[in-house]
Amino acid sequence: MSDLLYSETEDDLRAAVRSLLTDRAGHQELLGRIETDSPYVPGLWKALAGDMGAAGLLVPEKLGGQGASHREAAVVLEELGRAATPAPYLTSAVVATETLLALAGDSAPATELLSGLATGGTVAVLAVPLTASPYADPATAFTVTGVADSATASTATGAADPATASTVTGVADAVAADVLLVPRADGLYAVPAGEATVEPQTPLDLTRPLARVTTEAGTGTRLAGPDEARAAVRRGLLAGAGLLASEQLGLAEWCLEETVRHTRERHQFNRPVGSFQALKHRMAQLWLDLVGARAAARAAADALATGSPDAPLTVAVAQAYCSKVAVRAAEECVQLHGGIGMTWEHPAHLALKRAKSDQLALGSAGRHQDAIAALVDLPAPA
């Protein structure tokens, strides 16, 4: 039986993370930073990942981590989602860490890299598109070899040769990475960011930077062979998809709370607009959606934490449901704020863009629904 309730430890962790983000990375701070070259708040990652120890929650104590579980990491992501915080937590502390944990017993380089990730001193990013799902083959689906523009890309060693260079577009948080985990046909490689070309792209969600990553064959340290690499990458992406549901939950909760606050304060005809029946019904329906999203997200985090054999199914259910709830909550937030919700000065657009980006991240709702059908042996109609 899944435990969907928050423990006292998880509540304490939530309070600490929320306090840090309120002090250092509030919405007004982010609104000012997204117009700069980097949305990352200086010093925030060190405080969150290193000083607070959040980066090592999934890493065993013997490897320098906190020895916690996906449940605690889910709480951190809920708070990061509430604040739409630009931080490589999902990509480094969850996806890359889980990928390396799958190899830690057999690969000394992977174990060594994990120790750096656990302290927050190293940021690693799996070099796959943000839209990569756990159900694709990393050896063939994520890497484009010999693309036309790679011939003109500048790398640390000179011009890239289309015959040997590989390029992946839409890699989240690659601009913040110290190490890139690159899936290739013959295995998984750890490539220092200085040996790759990382070209920033313009994303919809300005709080989660995307980049085009070009690496040359022969660069980096081989961490695993092809079979082990496929299993490790799937594990990383599955954990990322499961905990992304918690980020979407936190984002949707903020949208509802902010909307309720605004409609209580905003008056028309001498009455709070939140007292109008039509708006009350819309917010009540959104609250019901949030209750379901919380149950789905918590079930996914608990299944990953306990190593449940039903984890793939639970994760797919959580993503198929929570991604839609987050988008709907953000849309309602913008609409029910009226004119101010349409402006750049109000943070509602940060939530909407993050929700739309998350809707495609780590597999669309449709991909997860297809996975549910396959896992329960319920094929779609011909």
Rank of each mutant, 00 (worst) to 15 (best):
S150P: 03
G338K: 11
V95N: 05
L243P: 09
Y189E: 11
V198A: 11
S308Q: 03
E112G: 15
A320Q: 11
V317G: 01
H267K: 07
V191L: 13
T263S: 12
T122K: 12
Q335R: 15
N270M: 10
P109I: 10
G307K: 02
E199H: 13
P272A: 04
P379Q: 07
Q201G: 09
A224K: 11
E331L: 14
R208G: 12
E8M: 05
L243M: 05
E253T: 03
E78R: 11
H337G: 01
P200H: 14
I340D: 08
L223M: 07
A159D: 13
T207A: 14
G240I: 04
T22S: 13
L238Q: 07
L181Q: 06
Q268T: 12
S357K: 10
P272F: 00
K353R: 15
G121P: 02
L126W: 08
Y135R: 01
D23N: 09
A104V: 09
V144N: 15
V171Q: 02
V182M: 14
D186R: 13
G105D: 15
V41P: 10
Q201D: 14
G274F: 05
R261A: 13
G292S: 09
A330D: 08
T207F: 03
A299Q: 11
G56T: 03
G341N: 06
T97S: 13
F276T: 08
T259Q: 04
K353W: 11
Q335E: 15
A110R: 06
G50Q: 13
R266P: 00
E35T: 14
V76Y: 04
V315N: 00
V198Q: 10
T197Q: 15
A296W: 03
A96E: 07
T219Y: 07
S69Y: 00
Q319I: 00
A177L: 06
Q319M: 09
A55L: 01
T155W: 04
V325C: 10
L204I: 15
L13S: 04
E98Y: 06
G240P: 08
L279D: 10
D370S: 14
V260P: 04
A231C: 00
A190Q: 11
R184N: 05
Q335M: 12
T155L: 14
V260H: 00
L13M: 05
L288F: 11
E61G: 03
G170E: 02
Q248A: 10
S275Y: 05
T143G: 02
A176Y: 01
G43K: 12
E228M: 01
R33V: 08
S364N: 03
L223W: 11
A54G: 00
S2F: 11
V94E: 07
A176S: 15
L4Y: 00
P347R: 04
L100P: 02
T343L: 11
T85F: 04
G65K: 00
A156M: 03
G292R: 07
A239T: 08
R328W: 09
H349I: 06
A83I: 03
R212E: 15
A278H: 13
P226F: 04
A231D: 13
P203G: 14
A54M: 02
G218H: 11
P272G: 08
G53M: 01
